[in-house]
């Protein structure tokens, strides 16, 4: 990072990428909207999915192009310290918005466990709800039998989930060491530790898929088996999506590191990736606690 002080501002030049990104979002939203609406109808044409795929492609092209420009500008010393700070703050606020997104689902989980299910069982001011509408319903969590009688088994925390917790915790440590390596200028430590982190991420995803298969095939636990299944799959699913993106993010960082990018001062992208990874980790800890253990 060029060590200019705040006396000179830097304003990035015009760029075609944002509007490409907006088009990508348009294709994704419009395509997904049609695809989802056509799900029920096997005869429907598939152009919704095509648009969606096109949108995702354009999105990736946009990201690649945008970041390429960004990297070139950064490496040619255009970025100053102030911009670096802006990026860091921006990333932190972005992570905050992600936290609030998960908060919506954690909030739903909490509400369902503490309020909705007990109420269906006659708690609080809902004695008549239970007596008149759902006399046979037994409130409990995990909700293994819904009011309308759908049965499922609960997912314990022993086994895969616990292993996955260990994996993610380890990966948080390894990425921290990668970070230290970068700061010390030990590039070997940096790239090897980052590589291990990526492997751990992939391992996590692999086990997660195993767990889903187990849930669907052995436990009868599916996305549609009542609110237990709903919250289970929505929370772990969105988390899994974030791990996937995080792993991709780290992978790109690794490729850049192999090519000799980043210095002990100039490494915003790597920092952002590691922050993101830590965030994904912490979400998992909450998940492990509230979805599996308690």
């Amino acid at each position: 990072m060029s060590q200019q002080d705040k006396s000179q501002y830097y304003v990035p030049a015009q760029s075609p990428w944002p509007i490409v990104g907006a088009c990508a979002f348009f294709l994704i939203a419009f395509g997904a909207g049609h695809m989802v609406a056509d799900l029920q109808d096997p005869q429907a044409s598939q152009w919704g999915s095509l648009l969606l795929i096109a949108g995702v492609l354009v999105l990736f092209i946009m990201l690649a192009g945008w970041f390429k420009d960004q990297i070139n500008e950064s490496r040619s010393g255009l970025h100053n310290r102030q911009l670096g700070i802006s990026y860091r703050q921006g990333m932190l606020w972005f992570i905050f918005s992600e936290i609030m997104f998960f908060a919506a689902f954690f909030g739903a989980l909490l509400y369902l466990r503490v309020i909705a299910v007990p109420w269906l069982g006659g708690d609080s001011n809902n004695a008549m709800t239970h007596a008149v509408l759902w006399p046979d319903f037994v409130p409990q969590w995990p909700l293994t039998e819904t009011p309308d009688g759908t049965k499922t088994q609960a997912m314990g925390y022993w086994g895969l989930p616990l292993i996955n917790t260990v994996i993610l915790l380890t990966s948080s440590v390894t990425i921290h060491f990668a970070d230290l390596g970068l700061k010390k200028g030990n590039r070997k430590q940096l790239s090897s530790m980052l590589f291990i982190t990526i492997l751990l991420g992939i391992g996590f995803l692999f086990l997660q898929v195993e767990e889903y298969i187990h849930a669907y095939q052995d436990l009868g636990l599916t996305l549609s088996s009542g609110v237990y299944g709903n919250t289970f799959f929505m929370l772990t699913g969105f988390h899994g999506l974030h791990v996937t993106l995080g792993t991709l993010f780290l992978l790109v960082m690794w490729l850049r590191i192999v090519r000799g990018h980043f210095s002990s001062e100039n490494h915003f992208a790597f920092l952002a990736a590691s922050w993101y990874w830590h965030f994904v980790d912490i979400v998992w800890l909450c998940l492990f606690l509230f979805v599996y253990v308690l």
């Binding site: 609030m100 739903a108 909705a116 009542g226």
Partner: peptide, 29 residues
């Protein structure tokens, strides 16, 4: 805004993917 995104997401899955966040029959509300 992310909470709104969560809300519409649940509406989407309730309508199209069989979840029952907002349906008492599945334990929702």
């Amino acid at each position: 805004m992310p909470v709104l995104a969560g809300a519409v997401t649940m509406v989407l899955t309730d309508k199209y993917f069989g979840t029952s966040f907002f349906d008492a029959a599945g334990g929702g509300d």
